[in-house]
Design a protein around this nucleic acid. Sequence first.
DNA 1: ACCTGAACACCGTTCAAGT
DNA 2: ACCTGAACACCGTTCAAGT
Lengths: 237, 237
Amino acid sequence: MVEAPVADASRPRLTRERVLRRAVDIADAAGVEALTMRRLADELGVEAMSLYHHVRGKGGILDGAVELVLDELAAAADTSAVPAQDGGWRAAVRARLLAARTVMLRHPWAPDVMAARSVMTLGAARHVDAVVGLMRDGGLSYDLVHHGLHALGSRMFGFSPEIGEPDAGDQQGADALAGMAELVPHLAAMLAEVAHDDASTLGWCDDQAEFEFGLDLVLDGLDRLARGSSAAGDGRG
Amino acid sequence: MVEAPVADASRPRLTRERVLRRAVDIADAAGVEALTMRRLADELGVEAMSLYHHVRGKGGILDGAVELVLDELAAAADTSAVPAQDGGWRAAVRARLLAARTVMLRHPWAPDVMAARSVMTLGAARHVDAVVGLMRDGGLSYDLVHHGLHALGSRMFGFSPEIGEPDAGDQQGADALAGMAELVPHLAAMLAEVAHDDASTLGWCDDQAEFEFGLDLVLDGLDRLARGSSAAGDGRG
DNA sequence: ACCTGAACACCGTTCAAGT
DNA sequence: ACCTGAACACCGTTCAAGT
């Protein structure tokens, strides 16, 4: 009746790999705030302290979980790669970042964790390295590539943080804005018109379309600069 | 010898305003993670529970602190406003977002809090409304303005989250990258060249210059689209 | 109405002890 | 080497009690 306390076949040996996989699963299903040492241990059929034998604490778990996501990203980018000559570096970079996005959409917590613990991990560096390689092969100078990485910002990893604009279905945000329509007339007018035009989405914004719009704006700008046709920044220096 | 317990002249009456101001001070000086109910109360010479009579808990404090920062932003944007006709909407938007940036640089925690608790507050809506107004007056359609807001992303509020690239003086990131130089050859080569060229900053990147580069890239792209000269996004739809 | 002290339900983590 | 239980030092917050 009493369960065998250790070396049970129903509880395979604890492993760094198993710990991190389960951490990703929890974050996917319930968000990072639900990813606690005690819950993670519990789901693995173990005590919280046992985890410390396989990972360097909570921080190590977050870093390791992100690294698993970045492995997924690398795999997705490989399978959806575009032939280099087929539209040039621009199409190749575009395809890679859209592939990255499909992975990040499966792990919405990953961007937040990457932002909070911004260290240059191997997985992140490899992704950036691939993009740098594509741009360089396309004839961009390292200097322009460098500016380009900054201009891409978080779009580099397939997402763009949406601040200030309510998401599709954000009823609370919609109500709040409606309540202050007379205080923000331009914004209210814009949203009224856009919401009316764009019946394809439930709410106001099609995140995927907006991501691609912003991405193309940056890639087009870089392409133009690479060709030397015009200078960005006539305002200052 | 014993201090008067209440109505002491050295302890002015607790007020929502005083609570929020002190919250901003703590976050500025020690980061958001140092902003706890107990510490905040302590610095105000009061018990933690007293705060609940003036704010709606920790969340209300964070929201209120951000709102104070946005008030500062509005004031800074007003004083550095550019005449509308002087370079058109582009220069006016540019000036406002650079003004926003100077404020956000004084409160580096604010972007994180805004991202974490993304509700459309009055202060945020007013800032966005001003930008929409400038663009609209410049002749952009509401539809283009809407896309433009998404493309600007967090640059709207004067910052751009830097993921994956070590900051200036990030020795740990530098060491990490040096250790995997052979695994990320393009990235290593780029950084070696850029670091050599750019002797003006201590580290690799001049954040202000990169912010302006990205901002100008987006504004130029929008301006070009408004003039109808070329389409962004030849890749898809 | 405003403020307090004790307590509750959580965190991540250290430590000494088990096998 | 691996896992455990109790404990520590924190959190935000509820509650009943004070003035």
